[in-house]
Design a protein around this nucleic acid. Structure first.
Lengths: 368, 368
DNA sequence: CGAAGAAAAAATGACTGTCAGAATTTTCCG
DNA sequence: CGGAAAATTCTGACAGTCATTTTTTCTTCG
C-alpha cells in the first residue's frame, strides 16, 4: 500500500484536497466538525504531510511571476562583543553558504540570536511561521545551547568542530591535516627547526589540533628538531622574543603576523635567514605566507549538507552526528623561501618528508 | 513578462515538457539537434530551472513507482595478502554500507580488484555495462590509484583518510577526537600517567592522529605525566616490558591486547594497579576495555553520501574533496577501574579534564 | 411561507519538473 | 516495399497551496 496522500485521503472522505489541507492546517474556513473528522482519518491512515512540497507549493502559488525558492536560515549566536576576526570569518562563511544555496535553489536569510538580536524561543516562532526548515549555525563562542528549538521541524548543521546541545552534524576546517601538510611543505623548502606559538584559549577551542599535529611530526620525523611550543594565554612581544632567541627556530608558525616585526627586531632577515607562516589568512594583509582555511568552501559544504537532508525530508537531530572537514590551502608569501626547483630522486626516497599541503602526494612520511 | 517555465518554453518550441526537460538535462533520449535547439532557446529566454521543484518532483515520481533504485558497487583493492584485522574491518564496513543502502533502495555488490580479482580497466567495463554509477571504495593498503576509471560516469566515496588518485570524498573514523575523548574519560577515572605504544607503519597510515592527540593532551594538561610513547616498527614483548618497567604508566593504550599478559607478567594487577585500553575492538575478544570505531556507522554514512550524490545526478570527481568522520565509542571492560560515582562540583571546575568520549560534555579542557 | 440576499463551507484550477511507459516517427534490411 | 527494430517524442499522473468559483446553509422580510 502506497503512502497516503492528500488526494487519497480526500477521496476516502468524499472531500476535496483543499478542504483536507485546510482542515489539517487548522484553517477557520472549514467547519469544526469536518476538521475533526479529517484529522481523525488522517491519523488513522498514517498520513504525513510532505513539508518540502508544501513549502514549494506555497511559494509557487503566492508569487506567480517572481522566481520562487526555498529559504535557509543562517543563525548567528552573539553573546557578547566579538573580535573583528570572528566577524570576518562568519561573513566569509555566510558568503559561501549563500552562493552554494543559491545554486541549489535556496535563498539564505541571516538571523542573530542573543542580546543584540532575538531570543531563541522567538527564533523558533519566526522560523516556523516562515516555513523555514533548513538551518546553518555559524560558529559561536563557548558551547551553544539550542535545545529550546523544536528540532522535529528543522534540519541543521553547525559550522565548527563540535556542538552537543543538540548534537548536530558539523562542518569545519581540518586543522590537523593542514598542519601536517604545512610541515611537509616547509620540510621540502629545507626548514628543519619549525617553531610554533599559540594562545591557550584558541588552542583549547580547537582541541589542540594545531599543536597535536605539530608535536606528532616533531616526534616522528628524525631530522626535525624539537623546538618547544610557546604556549601562553596571550602572546606578548617580550615573551615571543625571549622564546625566539632561546630556541632560534628557522621557521615560525602562529596566528599573529606581528611576529614578523618581532623576529626582525632580533636580527632575523626574512625570508633569507628565517621564515614565517600565519595560520589564518584573515589576520594578514597579504604580506606574509599564510593558510587559507577555505571558509567559503566550508560554507558551501554546510549548505549542501542541509539542503541534501531537506530534500530527503530528514528533519530532526541525527542519530549519529558526523564531522565533515576540508583542508586548508597554503598561500605563499614573501616570508618563506621557495622550495628547491628540482628534487633529486634520493631526496624523494628519504623517510622524512611531511605530507604536502596540496594533497598532490601521499600523506605518509614514507613515500609509497 | 513572467519568468519562463518548462511549459512555456515547450509551447514556444512546439515540443513537449518532457523533451525540453530531457534536453536540458543532457539525456541521450533526445536527438542532438533538438537538444541544441532547446538549449539555445532556453538561454535566449533566460530560463532557469527551479532545482527545488525538480527535486520534489523527482522524489515524488520515484517513490510512487519503483521500489528498487539501483546498485552500488563496493570495490576492494587487494594488492597482496591482507591481515585478518583488515579483512574483518572491511566486512564490517560492507555490512554497514549494505544495510543503509538497502534502506535507501539500493543493492550492494562487491567487486575485488587486483591479482585475486579483475583489473581496473575491466571493472570500468563491468560497471558501465551493468549501469552502476555509485561506488564505495573500501580501504586499500598503500595509496590506491583508480584514475583509470572513466570518472564522468561514477560518483564515489573512499572509506579511509585519504585518496588522491583521484581526489574523492572520504569517510573515516575520527581517531584524533576519539583519543582526546578517551584520555578525558581515563582522567575522570583517576588515571594520571597514561602511556601509549604504537607500531610505526600504522601510525604513519593514520598521519599520527593517535599520537598527535596523545602528545597534545600530555603537553597541555598539567596533571598528566609525560610518559614517552613506545614507538617501534613492531611491538615485541621484551621492548614492551622494558618500556613498561621503566616508565610505569598507570594506564596503557595501544593496539595489541597481548599487552595485558605482558603487564601482568611484570607484576601489574588489572584493574587494581594498572589499566589497559585496546584501540580497536576488532583485535579483542571482549576481555578488555576497547574502542569501537563504529565501522557500521561509517559504512552507512558512506552509502548515504554516494546515494545523495546519485539522486542529484552529481557524477564525477568533486571540486573540493572533503573528509567526513565519526568518533569512536568506548566499550568498558575488566581492564579499567570505574569512575568515582559522584563528581564534586569542585572536581568539575578544574582545568584538566580531557573531553569525554560520549560527547555529553564540552570538549575543551576548560569546562564552560 | 417563500424568495432574495448574505454568509459559510467546500470545490476547482493552475502551478512547478520528473519519470515510466505509450505513441509516434525514422532507420534499416531483406 | 514490408515489416521489424530503433530512435525520438509525447502523455499522464503526481505533490500541496491558495485565489477564485461554486455549492450549501442561514437569515430576513414582504
Amino acid at each position: 500500500m502506497p503512502a497516503p496522500t492528500l488526494r487519497s485521503l480526500a477521496r476516502e472522505l468524499g472531500l476535496s484536497r483543499t478542504t483536507v489541507s485546510d482542515a489539517l492546517c487548522g484553517s477557520l474556513r472549514v467547519k469544526a466538525a469536518t476538521a475533526e473528522r479529517v484529522r481523525a482519518a488522517a491519523k488513522a491512515a498514517g498520513y504525513e504531510r510532505n513539508p518540502l512540497t508544501g513549502a514549494v507549493m506555497s511559494q509557487l502559488r503566492r508569487s506567480r511571476t517572481q522566481q520562487f525558492r526555498g529559504v535557509l536560515a543562517a543563525v548567528e549566536l552573539v553573546e557578547d562583543v566579538r573580535s573583528g576576526i570572528a566577524v570576518r570569518y562568519n561573513s566569509a562563511l555566510l558568503a559561501g553558504i549563500s552562493e552554494r544555496a543559491s545554486q541549489l535553489g535556496f535563498n539564505v536569510e541571516r538571523f542573530v540570536v542573543g542580546p543584540q538580536g532575538v531570543r531563541i524561543k522567538r527564533l523558533d516562532t519566526i522560523l516556523h511561521t516562515r516555513g523555514i526548515q533548513g538551518v546553518v549555525l555559524l560558529p559561536a563562542s563557548g558551547f551553544p545551547d539550542l535545545t529550546a528549538l523544536d528540532w522535529n521541524r528543522y534540519t541543521a548543521v553547525y559550522t565548527d568542530y563540535f556542538i552537543d546541545h543538540p548534537p548536530l552534524h558539523c562542518v569545519c576546517s581540518d586543522h590537523y591535516r593542514s598542519m601536517i601538510a604545512l610541515l611537509r611543505d616547509l620540510h621540502e623548502r629545507g626548514y628543519r627547526r619549525p617553531g610554533l606559538f599559540m594562545e591557550i584559549p584558541l588552542s583549547e577551542r580547537l582541541q589542540y589540533r594545531w599543536e597535536g599535529a605539530f608535536l606528532a611530526v616533531q616526534n616522528a620525523v628524525p631530522d626535525i628538531s624539537a623546538v618547544p611550543t610557546l604556549r601562553l594565554q596571550e602572546i606578548t612581544r617580550s615573551s615571543f622574543e625571549a622564546w625566539f632567541r632561546k630556541y632560534n627556530p628557522d621557521v615560525v608558525i602562529g596566528h599573529s603576523p606581528e611576529a614578523v616585526t618581532w623576529m626582525k627586531s632580533t636580527g632575523a632577515r626574512l625570508p633569507k635567514t628565517h621564515g614565517f607562516v600565519c595560520l589564518n589568512v584573515l589576520r594578514t594583509n597579504g604580506n606574509c605566507a599564510t593558510l587559507d582555511l577555505q571558509t567559503a568552501e566550508l560554507g558551501a559544504r554546510a549548505a549542501e549538507l542541509v539542503v541534501g537532508q531537506l530534500l530527503h525530508n530528514e528533519l530532526g537531530i541525527p542519530t549519529q552526528p558526523s564531522l565533515t572537514t576540508i583542508p586548508a590551502r597554503l598561500i605563499d608569501g614573501p616570508t618563506l623561501r621557495s622550495a628547491p626547483r628540482q628534487r633529486s630522486p634520493r631526496h624523494q626516497s628519504t623517510s622524512s618528508i611531511p605530507p604536502s599541503i596540496d594533497s598532490s602526494r601521499p600523506l605518509s612520511l614514507q613515500e609509497a
